[in-house]
Structures are given as structure tokens and as C-alpha cells.
Design a protein around this nucleic acid. Structure first.
Lengths: 163, 163
DNA sequence: GCAAGATTGTTATTGAAAATAACCGTTATG
DNA sequence: CATAACGGTTATTTTCAATAACAATCTTGC
């Protein structure tokens, strides 16, 4: 039988003072944690890349092209999981700044072979190092072991087959 | 002295056939891995939540309200790192569906105390379980150890002080 | 006690990014 | 050889985050 003086389930606790907000169920969801972790890093990466007039997405494109010389736009879009139509303006900007080139490929006159220029490769290297440092700072709560663990787990999750 | 028959640094390798795209430098950046991992989970979570006419953000709001009865909109916005102006329409929709309530708080007539209804709490519980299952499926490449490690690292990174 | 400033929820507006559709030239396929 | 599929492009739409301004209320410093 129900207790007397029972409080309804949706009662507001007395101690509801101050901003001690609990994650609760949400905190046990990995997707939530991943997003929060990413949100910690993203603004910092954005900040350091802006010094080179790069956004995260254009840096990603540049970096992919450096590491995959000759890649086609469709391949690049698939690798970065974006629409190839939205890729065009980004490639345009990178080419404008002479960080990459669109080369005609003789065997298939539809596609372009994307390659990075020397400037592009150097900029990528410098920017990547800065991003790495920014990440390190943003993740200063993790010791080296944790960071290594995180990288390893992410690699196992994502590596070997893009899906 | 330079070799004869030297190929320029930006040459396109012969084996550039098939979609074997390499992450390269990008793959060593944690932010990139976090985003990719999140991108693996997000669409699945979106899919299962859509069955209850919820989006990820509205589910997050509902869940937060369930776990923090009496929370104010500004607090909620801060906790979820979004603008309180953008929160309004989401709260409106949840209230419309009678999943939550805006209660007037007598001590401060500016703010509302957000509470979940019984329906809201039940829906949250069901939806959360479905999201959990969807995450498990999306992360099937990780064994239990890896999953535990990932959760633990994320918890250390994010827990104890929102910053 | 009161004026000035800060806070809460709200609306409207803006801006940027992602998704969709259609098109042209080219290549692959039956 | 006709038709379909593909790669790049453009234009358009949809979606989402960010900004500004406002009324009502509360807090503060004097």
C-alpha cells in the first residue's frame, strides 16, 4: 500500500539550486560522449587553422590530397563523407591559392587527378602540427596512456574498411 | 647530385587504381577519429529516434529534463552547449506532445521549471534503450573491453567539471 | 527605496553548411 | 550503337547554428 506523504514522481527536488546538472542517462551513451569530446577539440582546431585561412573541412581535403596524390573528387568526397557538389567550391579555393592542382587525366577525360603543390604540402605539414598541438592542449585531462588508448580504439573502430 | 630519371615529388603513383584511399596524416588526429566515430553512430541514433518523432537534440533535451527535474531553460542550454534561443522551439514541441511541462516557479517569475511528464519519462526510457542498442550495433567492431575503455576515457576527459 | 544593470525566456533575422536536383561531357555496357 | 552510368559542375533548397533585440523580472549599489 502506498506511503502517506508520498511525493509525486515528477516532484522538483528541494536541492535544485546551483548549476549542478547531471548527465544521467545521456552520459552513458557513447555517441553523446564522442560528440562532447569532438566539441572540445573542434573550436581549437578551427582557431589554429584560421591562421592559415583554412577551415577544418578544407584542411581535411588538402591533407587527403597530399596523402593520396591523383585522387579524384568523387573519391575524396566519399572518403570525407561529403557531397561531391559541396566539394567543388572547396577545391576551387584550394586551387586558387595554388595549394593543389586539378590535372587532366588522359585515360579518363571526365575526372581530374588532384595533386598538392609544394606549397600545399608544406602548409599541410605545418597546419597538421599545429592542430596536433591544439588537440593535445584540448585533451590535457588525458595522460599519455589514455590518449594512446583512445587513438587505438578509434583506429580499431574505423580502420580496415571504411564502410 | 640529383638522380637521373628522378620523379617529381608530386608525381601520381602508378598504382592509383581502385578506391584505396589512405587517411595519412589525418588518421593520426584524434578530432578526425572522434568525428568519424560519431558519424558512424549518429545516423543510426537518428533513425531509431525518428520512430518516436524525436531528433537527437530533442531526445537530449528530454533526457536531460527527466534526469534534472526543475531545470531551467538557460541551464539546459548551457548543459547541451546550445543557444537558449534555439532551445525554445524544441521545448515548445516537447511540451506540445505533453512529454514535458513548463512550470511557473514562484520564487523567480522569469524562469520556468522544466519537468517531464509520465509519458515523457517512459518515452525517454524506451528511446534511450533503443539508442543504446543502435550504438552497440554501430560499434560492433569493438569488443567489450574496447567499448569499456572508450567509455572510461571519454568519462575521464569530460567528467568532473563541464568546462 | 530606487535607479541601473543583469537575467530569463522569447521572437525575428542572419549566416553558414548540408542535402537535393538537374545538367553536360564522357565512358562503360548490352 | 543506343542506353545507362559516371564525374564534375551549377543552382536551389533545406537545415541548423549564431546574433540581435525585446519585455518581464530580478539583483545591485547607492
Amino acid at each position: 500500500m502506498p506511503k502517506l506523504d508520498e511525493s509525486p514522481d515528477d516532484a522538483i527536488p528541494e536541492d535544485r539550486i546551483g548549476p549542478k546538472v547531471e548527465d544521467g542517462v545521456l552520459g552513458n551513451l557513447i555517441g553523446y560522449g564522442l560528440k562532447r569530446a569532438y566539441m572540445r577539440i573542434h573550436p581549437e582546431a578551427q582557431r589554429v587553422l584560421a591562421e592559415d585561412d583554412l577551415r577544418v573541412v578544407s584542411f581535411s581535403c588538402l591533407s587527403m590530397i597530399v596523402d593520396n596524390p591523383g585522387i579524384a573528387q568523387t573519391e575524396l568526397a566519399a572518403a570525407l563523407q561529403m557531397e561531391r557538389s559541396n566539394l567543388v567550391v572547396i577545391i576551387d579555393a584550394l586551387e586558387e591559392r595554388e595549394l593543389i592542382e586539378r590535372r587532366k587525366v588522359p585515360t579518363d577525360r571526365r575526372r581530374f587527378a588532384l595533386t598538392a603543390t609544394l606549397r600545399g604540402r608544406h602548409l599541410r605539414d605545418r597546419a597538421a602540427e599545429r592542430v596536433r598541438l591544439a588537440e593535445e592542449a584540448a585533451l590535457d585531462r588525458l595522460d599519455d596512456d589514455d590518449r594512446a588508448r583512445l587513438i587505438a580504439v578509434l583506429e580499431r573502430l574505423l580502420g580496415a574498411g571504411a564502410r
